[in-house]
């Protein structure tokens, strides 16, 4: 059928990035198919419309109809949604994403944060947890962490790093390659799947696999008026496409982690598990990180404890 509705979509992923291919484009394409071609897209990739931290506002204002919303960029507008980024919530994308997405769909504080920004969430996926991607040999004892400088996204990740005596370092992503090359940092907390896109594998000597360091969480949101102005069948197509994307992307992410780790081994990178004594320290730290999060969110008058309890109940083991 001929496209009756042409919508604009913005993200900030570079060309061919798996989150664009298997997340953003997948959702757009499924929506197109499920609506029998009634919906089609004008796609602005790679931050053409706004930086990652500006897409939610662009959706809110209707400067773009729909777009990628990375939870980590919006601690001001989507504070409670950051519960999904806390360390130790889910070991895989498959274990966490269905629960988070269910919570985001239901009437509740997480969905309301999007609606307050005039945006309707269409899908939400928790990626694979961050791991220690280091230009050093594996960190196999708690002492190995002491004095290591590690790039981190801040917040709860800093607490877990500091619990073992490592030093969290903040820097913009484009500086990371050079910083790791020159030894400004010893490594970075990074999702396994993001290592290749930033070419950090060229500099990496070891990668952990079982560290509970928190997760990056990605969603798609659509402008509320745009969504409500669509025909019921079109709305349903977008909704259904969202459901399918959550499953598809979470499966892809988990399968791809395995594939990437294989490639790393073939490249001569050491892929390893933290031993129990390290995990114990990390788990103590993440309890502390949770408490810190609840305290700071509650200070703002937000129902943090309830959200955290609800969220943890929905996580699969």
């Amino acid at each position: 059928a001929r496209a009756e509705t042409v919508l604009t979509f913005a993200d900030s992923f570079p060309d061919g990035h798996y989150l664009a291919e298997e997340g953003m484009k997948y959702w757009m394409q499924r929506a197109e198919e499920l609506s029998d071609g009634a919906i089609s897209w004008t796609y602005f990739p790679a931050g053409q419309i706004a930086k990652a931290g500006g897409i939610l506002t662009a959706v809110r204002d209707g400067r773009v109809d729909a777009g990628y919303v990375g939870i980590g960029y919006f601690s001001d507008k989507l504070p409670l949604n950051s519960v999904s980024m806390l360390p130790g919530m889910a070991p895989t994308a498959g274990a966490g994403s269905p629960g988070y997405w269910a919570m985001l769909k239901a009437d509740g504080p997480l969905r309301q944060e999007f609606l307050d920004s005039n945006a309707v969430p269409m899908m939400g996926v928790m990626l694979d947890p961050y791991q220690m991607v280091m230009a050093t040999p594996p960190l196999t004892t708690p002492e190995d962490f002491v004095g290591k400088k590690v790039r981190s996204g801040g917040g709860a990740m800093n607490l877990t790093l500091e619990s073992l005596g490592a030093t969290p370092v903040a820097m913009p992503a484009p500086d990371m390659y050079v910083a790791m090359e020159r030894g400004t940092v010893d490594g970075t907390l990074f999702a396994i799947n993001s290592v290749k896109p930033y070419r950090v594998d060229e500099l990496t000597e070891s990668v952990s696999t079982n560290g509970p360091f928190g997760t990056f969480v990605i969603t798609i949101a659509i402008n509320k008026e745009t969504f409500e102005g669509l025909a019921p069948a079109e709305q349903e197509a977008l909704r259904q496409a969202g459901e399918e994307t959550v499953t598809h992307l979470a499966n892809y992410v988990d399968a791809n982690v395995g594939k990437r780790l294989e490639e790393f081994r073939a490249q001569g990178i050491t892929v390893y598990d933290f031993p129990p004594d390290v995990v114990t320290v990390l788990e103590e730290a993440l309890t502390e990180a949770e408490a810190d999060w609840v305290r700071r969110m509650s200070d703002r008058g937000l129902p943090a404890a309830e959200v955290l309890a609800d969220f943890k109940r929905r996580m699969q083991p």
Binding site: S75, D76, G154, R300
Partner: peptide
């Protein structure tokens, strides 16, 4: 808007938006 809502960035500390 940020003032009225008392929006905060969640970082090393809470930063007023």
């Amino acid at each position: 808007h940020a003032w009225v809502n008392a929006d905060l960035f969640f970082g090393v500390v809470d930063w007023p938006v």
